[in-house]
Each structure stands twice: as C-alpha cells, then as structure tokens.
Design a protein around this nucleic acid. Structure first.
Length: 209
DNA sequence: CTACCGATGCGCT
DNA sequence: GCGCATCGGTAGC
C-alpha cells in the first residue's frame, strides 16, 4: 500500500499503554494470505500487573513478553481460543499489548470462510475472533513482527483516529485504570462482557474519551 | 438490546 | 484441582 510502512521495533519499545494507544488505527497484515485489517481496539498489560501473563514466574509460555519488543505473544485461552499480543517495553520488562478488535479491509473471503458465516461486523470483533479470522495460533508466538518480509506485521498508513480509553475487558484487577484503547465511535470495537467491576464503575458501551 | 451459561484444555499468573 | 485477557447460543424484555 503506498505510503504505508512497517512499524519499527522502536515503536514497540515504549510503555505498553503508549504503544497500545498508538496501535489503534494501524494496519495489521497477514501478507502471505492477502489479509489486511485496521486495528480498532487494544489493551495494555504491564509488568507487575496481576492481569499480565508475565505476572509471577517467567515461563516458556510467557517468554516472548520478556524478549525484544515487537515480537508476537500468542496464548491459548478457555480451552479453545487464541489471543494475539505484541510484546512492548524494553527488553527484560515483560509488557504486552493485546489486539482485541479490527476492521476488515482486505481478504474478507478468507476471513469469512474461517469464521463460519458470521456477520462481517463480527469477523474481527473480539481477540479470539481476530486470531481465528487471521489464522493465527500458538505456532505464531515468538515471531518477530518488525521485519518487512514477515507474513504477520503491523504498518502505519497515516490513519489517525480519535482514541477513547476505558477499563480492560474481562479483567477484575486495575478496573480503575484505563488500559483499553479504542477508535472513537468505531462499530468494529468489541463491546463484549466488560468486567463486572468495570460495569459497576458505571458507563456503558464504548469507553469514555 | 441484555443476561446467562456451557464448552473446553492449558498453566499454575 | 481450579481459574481463565472468550465465544456463541438461547431466553427474555
């Protein structure tokens, strides 16, 4: 795409909330299958954050979170779902950004075939839906996304949506911390099962700006 | 639209 | 053994 460039490692080598906010509006590519999607929802997971998979022990599973920023961390959840994160922060600081939702741009037919005939609005609306549509599973964990030839990478095409933030979804800790970032007013954002504490904190629908 | 619930398997947060 | 950064279906308003 003219004018779009792969995000360099320096983009990811910053605190997760900054990276997460700046990822909104960027383009997620799976170029070997001609898939493109605009990221509309990202959550930040910080080191020493109890909701972060690197909380506690360093294990084989969460190892990518410690490594150089810009590497994928893909984990298996609830016995059936894969979720895609990008490691952020500096080496040795285990942070990451969870890609929660995106707007499909190219390769809709492939996404539809993987997603079993759901409405287009639901193709990428949710972290596990996103990975299912893109064909990303645990075998992608640890891969470097900051390589121009990588099949999975993130690019900047100059899109700069307004960002709103709010509590993370399905996370009870730090429900008062706005570590979820969305494109303002986007219909492609997941509005799924906010944490009970987030719901109790008031508000509804989209996070507040 | 909201609310609830079962599926399902990995890691130990 | 238990909890989980979820999803899809169904029931009911």
């Amino acid at each position: 795409m003219p004018g779009s460039r792969v995000l360099p490692r320096a983009f990811f080598a910053r605190p997760a909330p900054e990276v997460a906010a700046d990822l909104v509006g960027k383009v997620l590519l799976r170029s070997d299958e001609g898939l493109r999607a605009r990221i509309v929802e990202v959550e930040a997971y910080m080191a020493h954050d109890p909701a972060c998979h690197a909380y506690g022990r360093r294990t084989a599973r969460n190892e990518p979170l410690y490594g150089p920023a810009g590497h994928a961390y893909v984990y298996f959840s609830y016995g059936m779902h894969w979720c895609l994160n990008v490691a952020s922060g500096h080496a040795g600081v285990a942070e990451g950004c969870l890609l929660r939702a995106a707007e499909p741009l190219d390769g809709l037919e492939t996404m539809r075939s993987r997603r079993g005939g759901v409405r287009d609005r639901d193709l990428l609306r949710g972290p596990a839906r996103l990975t299912q549509a893109l064909g990303v599973d645990g075998s992608w964990s640890g891969r470097d996304l900051c390589v121009p030839s990588a099949p999975l990478r993130v690019a900047d095409d100059g899109c700069r949506p307004d960002i709103v933030s709010g509590p993370r979804v399905g996370v009870s800790v730090a429900a008062d911390t706005p570590w979820r970032f969305c494109a303002a007013g986007s219909p492609w954002v997941s509005d799924y099962k906010r944490s009970p504490r987030a719901a109790a904190a008031g508000g509804r629908g989209q996070p507040e700006g």
